[in-house]
Design a protein around this nucleic acid. Structure first.
Length: 722
DNA sequence: ACCACCTGTTATTAT
DNA sequence: AACAGGTGGT
């Protein structure tokens, strides 16, 4: 069936958009019009199948993607679709829990913990349990808890199988759960797990939402984790129709529990799945696309999909070998300027990197050249310490049981409540199993501390209570302002020397105006019934930590991690830091699965580029304040030379002769070995190649055997391919 | 109790 | 290099 909605789509896209009601899996390669298909599918359902927006649930991963989808659907339909549930997994789970907080076993004004809040709390819990932090790093405990939650496990479900390490982590998990419950706190993973359990355990509720959401659409399906999958499955019934869109080659969140298997499982678990593959790429030049295809072909176990384009060949992918990271940044800045000279805009340029720490040097170079830029991700507005301090006041006023917020601000600014006093309060709270707030009251009534400390505690309690009374009937802007002013934070930061104090105060003022700008009206009518403006604002702050600043400035170069760039496209992409140990990251080396994920990440980065792609690496780089030498990323080597072009040194920096010699890796002879290849060694047995260091006759290969990982000289090792 | 200073640790990737 | 936590002086 053709109509105006679909006439500008290609055949495969049309099939996906107009597929009859049923379960639909769209395997959509990079740049093949994935979002377009989703948006049109929604419009199609409404126009042709007369689906009410009320019956549609559309899930994405990032707030950015959700906003874009809403905008595009609305412009396609020419009307607003407020009744449609469209958002991130976390956002929708949050909405669900606010509505059904009682059934979910939460307190009415529960607050959301971000990862640094969570870290503090895990730490506090561990201290309460007197756990040796040397043997059990709190970071690992936090990681353990989140991993288990992502898989759908509660502490009570877990057994350690006689492993002392595991046993301890389970104990911490259990204690952490208890602390969260007592303080009315919910972390990111908990949002998902809790809403899954809500539907699982309440038949009427599940049935209600099943009846309501007949059409469920999921973006980036390859990146969903165990709980998210289970959550979606609960909605699957006779009359529910799923459209899921994904690309196994773009799976980059397996460290968060995502698993390509979900794409396979979808076909098995959901009845009569119709699969459509989108392979025509509309984004990149054929050079960029062919290079990316060649790269991703190094991965095993792919669904197998070959993207093609009938677009222009375009320019070769350029490679710049920088002397160090400063040289690299300077070159990138000069590239931005010459891009402008060719009549383009800064807006077209994206500089992508593997880890946030790389942004600093880039920033300095761009600043020096006077190039407007914007960093996405990294430390975001609502994650700044001073903002979280102020928000902790708001949260405590809002919910006295929030121990995390209490701990944060009870003596900030210093008001004479020291560690000794606090320890008494903590211990009392622990013994009686009550919140720190209640414990403080007890400590005062029973006079368990010297008079001076009691007075300090008393005035702290009084201040919070007063603020509550004063702001009860005020609008969000006024109450935020009153709370920030009364907190004494501004005076505290004024004492801080240097520029930091000023910036912090500016940020606090910005927080007040953010509260003023926060549009409670944009909150869906359903949510308005269950949320107060202040709770809505606090949740917004945690769930969308500073997304709003993203679209603010338009004409500037964009800096972000490759993860953050997923789903976006830019005419000119610069992928920097293409070095072994950085990309692929050290943490992922040594595990073929890890390397494959890094390779997919590289694939995602490359396929963001429309017209121009530049790769750069530095031969030496400072890491933890120490200079390290690095060799170019294996991913550069995996791209066929025909698509590449090395850029000559332009910089005035004199480079050591030895480095100049070795820099032209493109001239190095290819070895006959491939990463991931399985080989047999006469004495070590069978193994898999993890790494290759090309060096002519002395080329070394790293191989993981059953007995361990070894570096061998390829020409001497007598390796047999198997 | 508070502040300044010192020391050891530490960074994938993100909702 | 940056930061958090601990130590010692006030």
């Amino acid at each position: 069936m053709m109509n105006t909605l679909t006439h500008h789509l290609n055949t495969a896209q049309q099939h996906a958009v107009c597929a009859p009601l049923g379960n639909l899996l769209v395997l959509a390669g990079a740049g093949s019009g994935k979002t377009r298909v989703l948006v049109h599918r929604i419009a199609w359902l409404m126009q042709q199948e007369h689906a009410s927006p009320f019956s549609i649930l559309a899930v994405t991963f990032t707030n950015k993607a959700a906003n874009e989808m809403r905008t595009r659907v609305e412009s396609l339909l020419g009307s607003s679709v407020n009744a449609m549930w469209l958002g991130t997994f976390h956002g929708l789970a949050h909405r669900l829990l606010r509505t059904h907080w009682k059934d979910a076993g939460l307190s009415e004004n529960f607050q959301i913990l971000d990862s640094s809040d969570q870290q503090r709390l895990v730490r506090r819990v561990m201290r309460d349990l007197n756990i040796d932090e040397e043997r059990f790093p709190y970071k690992q405990a936090q990681w353990f808890i989140n991993k288990k939650k992502d898989e759908g496990f509660r502490a009570q479900h877990l057994s350690a199988h006689h492993q002392p390490q595991e046993e301890m982590f389970i104990r911490i998990y259990a204690a952490y759960e208890e602390a969260c419950a007592q303080s009315g706190l919910v972390d990111f993973a908990e949002l998902l797990l809790r809403s899954y359990e809500l539907w699982r355990d309440h038949d009427e509720l599940r049935q209600h939402y099943r009846n309501r959401f007949r059409h469920i659409l999921v973006d980036e399906f390859q990146d969903i984790n165990g709980v998210q999958y289970a959550w979606l499955r609960l909605l699957a019934g006779e009359n529910n129709f799923f459209t899921v869109v994904g690309d196994d080659d773009q799976l980059i969140y397996s460290w968060r529990g995502a698993c390509a298997d979900n794409l396979h499982k979808f076909k098995k678990d959901f009845p009569h799945v119709c699969t459509i593959t989108l392979e025509q790429n509309y984004r990149s030049t054929s050079t960029i696309l062919s290079a990316a295809n060649a790269l991703i072909d190094f991965n095993r176990d792919r669904f197998g999909k070959e993207l093609w384009t009938d677009g222009a060949i375009g320019d070769p992918i350029r490679i710049y070998a920088a002397y160090n990271e400063i040289d690299e940044a300077r070159f990138i800045a000069s590239e931005c300027l010459s891009w402008i000279d060719q009549g383009n805009t800064f807006n077209d340029v994206a500089v992508l990197y593997r880890s946030n720490a790389q942004s600093r040097v880039l920033e300095e170079a761009l600043l020096q050249q006077g190039i407007a830029y914007r960093i996405f991700g990294g430390l975001r507005f609502f994650e700044r310490a001073e903002i979280k301090d102020a928000l902790a006041y708001l949260r405590l006023v809002n919910n006295r049981f929030d121990d995390t917020s209490y701990e944060r601000i009870v003596n900030l600014p210093p008001r004479g409540i020291g560690n000794k006093s606090l320890e008494t309060v903590r211990q009392h709270a622990r013994e009686k199993s009550i919140s720190l707030w209640q414990a403080t009251h007890d400590v005062i009534t029973h006079a368990l501390l010297p008079a001076r400390a009691l007075t300090a505690l008393e005035s702290f309690l009084a201040m919070i209570d007063d603020l509550d009374n004063q702001t009860k009937n005020l609008a969000l802007l006024e109450s935020t302002e009153a709370i920030v002013n009364a907190s004494g934070l501004i005076g505290h930061f004024q004492k801080e020397k240097g520029e930091t104090g000023r910036t912090r105060i500016d940020n606090l003022r910005e927080l007040i105006s953010a509260a003023g700008e926060f549009n409670f009206d944009s909150v869906s009518p359903e949510e308005k019934e269950t949320l107060t403006p202040i709770t809505a604002f606090l949740s917004h702050a945690t769930l969308e930590a500073g997304e709003h600043q993203a679209d603010a400035m338009s004409n500037c170069v964009k800096l972000m991690t490759i993860h953050a760039a997923k789903g976006l496209e830019f005419p000119f992409v610069i992928l920097c830091g293409m070095e072994e140990g950085l990309f692929p990251h050290q943490m992922s080396k040594g595990d073929p699965k890890g390397i494959e994920e890094e390779r997919r990440l590289c694939y995602v980065g490359m396929t963001r580029a429309m017209r121009q792609l530049l790769l750069s690496y530095a031969e030496s780089r400072r890491v933890y304040g120490q200079t390290h030498m690095a060799s170019p990323s294996r991913f550069i080597r995996e791209i066929p030379q025909q698509y590449l072009q090395e850029i000559r040194m332009q910089s005035k920096i004199s480079r050591p002769a030895s480095l100049a010699e070795s820099s032209s890796f493109l001239n190095q002879k290819e070895t006959s070995f491939r990463l991931g290849q399985y080989v047999r060694h006469t004495s070590f047995g069978d193994g898999v190649i993890l790494d290759i260091e090309p060096n002519g006759e002395k080329t070394r290969v790293q191989i993981r055997f059953k007995t361990g990982t070894k570096w061998l000289i390829a020409s001497l090792a007598k390796l047999e391919s198997i």
